[in-house]
C-alpha cells in the first residue's frame, strides 16, 4: 500500500480528489473469500467459498438470509456484514408489518448504500469493510445488487467479489448474455463453474468448500450446502469448461489473510 499523509482519516481528501480510507476499506473486500451472484429472467443464484480461520473451527458464514425473497453473500469483514445483515432483516420485517408485503430490493439496497456513505463523511465512524451481493426476487422481478464500502451500489446480471474473484468475473463476462433464458439448474452450474476459478491454486472446488443460495419466482430463498450440491458438482465435472484459477501474481489480488475475521 502507498502510505501518505492523506490516508489516515476518512474525512480527508487527497490532492487528487480521492478518499484513501474508503479505498482501503474497499481493499478489505478484496481480501475476503470470493462470493458471486448471477441471475436469469426468473431466478438469482449466490455462491461463495467457505473459509475456516483454522483447522479446528467451522467456516465463517458467507450467505445470510434476509427475508423469504431475499439474501446476501458477502466478502470482507464478517462482523461488519453481520451487523448490516441485521439492519437489513429489521428493515424487511418493518416493511412486512407496515405494508404486508416483502420489500423492493432496490430500495433496501439504496438504504444500505446510504448507511455506507454516511460513514465516509463523518469522523466518528470508520467505513464498513465489506462488499455485499444482494439477491432478491421482488415485485419487479429478479435482481442482483452489489454494494461497496464507498456507498456506491450497482445492479448486475452477474458479478463476483473477493479474493481471486477476477477469474470468476472473466467467466461470467464470457457467459452472462446466455443467463437470461437459463433454467435454475443451468444457472447453478454456471455459478459453480465460475466459482471454481476462485479456489486457491493447488486445491479444487468441492461440495463442502462452498455455500450456495437460490431465490426466484415462486421460490423462497434457500441455502444449499455439502451433499445437496454434490449432484451439481458431478454435473460440472462431466461438462468441463469451468473457470481456471488465475496466476497467483495477478495484480490487485492478494493472498488471503484468513485470520483477520475475513470471510
Amino acid at each position: 500500500m502507498f502510505r501518505n499523509q492523506y490516508d489516515t482519516d476518512v474525512t480527508v481528501w487527497s490532492p487528487q480528489g480521492r478518499l484513501h480510507q474508503v479505498e482501503y476499506a474497499m481493499e478489505a473486500v478484496k481480501q475476503g473469500g470470493a462470493s458471486l451472484g448471477l441471475r436469469s429472467g426468473s431466478h438469482v443464484v449466490l455462491a461463495a467459498l467457505k473459509r475456516a480461520p483454522n483447522e479446528m473451527s467451522a467456516p465463517q458464514k458467507k450467505i445470510f438470509k434476509l427475508d423469504s425473497n431475499m439474501g446476501v453473500a458477502i466478502a470482507g469483514l464478517t462482523a461488519d456484514a453481520r451487523s448490516l445483515a441485521k439492519y437489513m432483516r429489521t428493515e424487511c420485517l418493518n416493511h412486512k408489518y407496515v405494508y404486508g408485503t416483502t420489500m423492493q430490493a432496490s430500495r433496501l439496497v439504496l438504504d444500505l448504500a446510504d448507511m455506507h456513505q454516511r460513514t465516509t463523511q463523518s469522523y466518528v465512524r470508520r467505513p464498513y469493510g465489506v462488499g455485499m451481493l444482494v439477491a432478491a426476487h421482488d415485485q419487479t422481478g429478479p435482481h442482483l445488487f452489489q454494494t461497496c464500502p464507498s456507498g456506491n451500489y450497482f445492479e448486475y446480471v452477474a458479478m463476483a467479489i473477493g479474493a481471486r474473484s477476477q477469474s470468476a468475473k472473466t467467466y461470467l463476462e464470457k457467459h452472462f448474455e446466455d443467463f437470461e433464458n437459463c433454467d435454475l439448474d443451468e444457472l447453478v452450474k454456471h455459478a459453480l463453474k465460475a466459482l471454481s476459478g476462485c479456489v486457491t491454486g493447488d486445491k479444487e472446488l468441492d461440495a463442502n468448500g462452498l455455500t450456495l443460495a437460490i431465490v426466484g419466482k415462486d421460490k423462497v430463498f434457500e441455502s444449499l450446502e455439502g451433499e445437496q450440491l454434490q449432484p451439481y458438482m458431478d454435473a460440472i465435472e462431466l461438462e468441463g469448461n469451468a473457470a481456471q484459477p488465475m496466476d497467483e501474481g495477478d495484480g490487485e489480488e492478494k493472498a488471503p489473510a484468513p485470520d483477520a475475521g475475513m470471510a
Binding site: Y97, V98, Y99, G100, T101, Q104, S106, R107, L110, D138, Q139, T140
Partner: peptide, 19 residues
Amino acid sequence: NMDDGFERSPAEIYNLLRT
C-alpha cells in the same frame, strides 16, 4: 422519485393506512 418502476399497490396502501 425512486423511478424504479415500482408503485405501492392498493393492498399495500391499505395495509399502510391500517398501520
